[in-house]
Amino acid sequence: MIRALAAAAVLAIAAPAVAQEAPAFTSLTQQFDDFATETAAMPMPERVKRFRERFNALLPGFYAPRNGATEEQYNIKVGRNLATYPAQRDKFLAAARDFSAAYVHGNAHFRRYFPDYAPVMPIYLVHSLGEMDGGTRDIDGKTVAVFGADVIAKIHDSTTIGPFLDHELFHFHHARYFSDCEAMWCALWQEGLATYVAGRMNSTEDDKTLMLTIPRPIRPEVEPKLAEAMCYARPRLDSVDPEVYASFFYGNGKSPYPPRFGYYLGYLIARKIGDGRPLDELAKMPGDQVKPLIEKALADYHCPPAA
């Protein structure tokens, strides 16, 4: 993550810890387990219908189709997750149980670097139906922070949970200072910077720790053709096409590069911009300052003229 870790350590000296409670979060994991257990013998169509009624009341707008999915496709996904839950139940409940302690520790660690951290959005721990380990969602014009205990149980362990929380808490913090936009360059900066900051906070460049190995290692496939990948990104910086976004940031994105390769490109760009700058300065950079820096970082890669 940082070419000169010794120098970075000086630049990222943590502020003294502040004795402050972690922001509260609402857990819906027990409600999910209760529902799955109580309705196990119910016919699936009725079970799915009741699930959506109950959980839409608990977290309105989250358990609904997105990214072009139909109601029928979403209901199939709900049914599939309910059907496979018994085999995953023990790991799910363990992840939900362990999250509280990890979250308190993660908040204390994060505030050593960002003492003014104070998220302005509600935070939930849920069964995400396989959608996410953590992130934000815009629902009915409001931003909500969500942790998915089901995905955390599948992909995180004691070596990654701390940096993962640093990454996600940085998103929550960054949202106070960086105005979101639909253009691809915004996501490149937001995801790349969160990955870079997590590395600085943990003095690591390890790809597994930084979640750059999901669903498979990204760096080994991108590095041999890095200039090509950066040149692929350059003309797409202003794109608002959801398919372009998916090609960079989704696990099943369609591009000439590995799934989620946008996280790696964004990380490299954030490293170019961030090395030598305090973390707090990076968190508070406005978009009109960031975009020219991204373009400058990309200009280092000599791209052929556009056809």
Rank of each mutant, 00 (worst) to 15 (best):
N67T: 04
A36S: 09
G79R: 01
L82W: 13
F92K: 03
E53H: 09
D33E: 11
D33M: 02
R54G: 01
N56D: 10
R54P: 05
N56P: 05
F32P: 07
A57I: 08
A94Q: 15
Q31P: 00
R97L: 14
K91E: 09
F35W: 11
F62S: 01
A95N: 12
K77Y: 04
T29Q: 05
T26A: 01
E72V: 11
A40P: 01
Q73T: 09
L59P: 12
R52I: 07
E21L: 10
D33Y: 02
F99Y: 04
S100Q: 15
E46Q: 13
A14V: 07
V48G: 10
A94I: 12
A64Y: 01
A40W: 01
P23L: 07
A40K: 09
G79W: 03
D33K: 00
A22K: 14
A83N: 12
F99N: 12
F25T: 07
E21R: 12
I76M: 06
V78H: 06
A57D: 12
L28C: 02
T37K: 03
E38N: 07
A19H: 10
M44G: 09
A94C: 13
F51E: 10
A94R: 15
Q20V: 14
S27Y: 07
F99V: 13
Y74Q: 03
Y63K: 10
G61L: 04
Q73W: 01
A41V: 03
F32L: 05
G68W: 01
A96E: 06
R89D: 02
Q31I: 03
R97D: 15
F92A: 12
T39N: 03
F99G: 12
N56Q: 09
N75C: 09
D98P: 04
P60K: 13
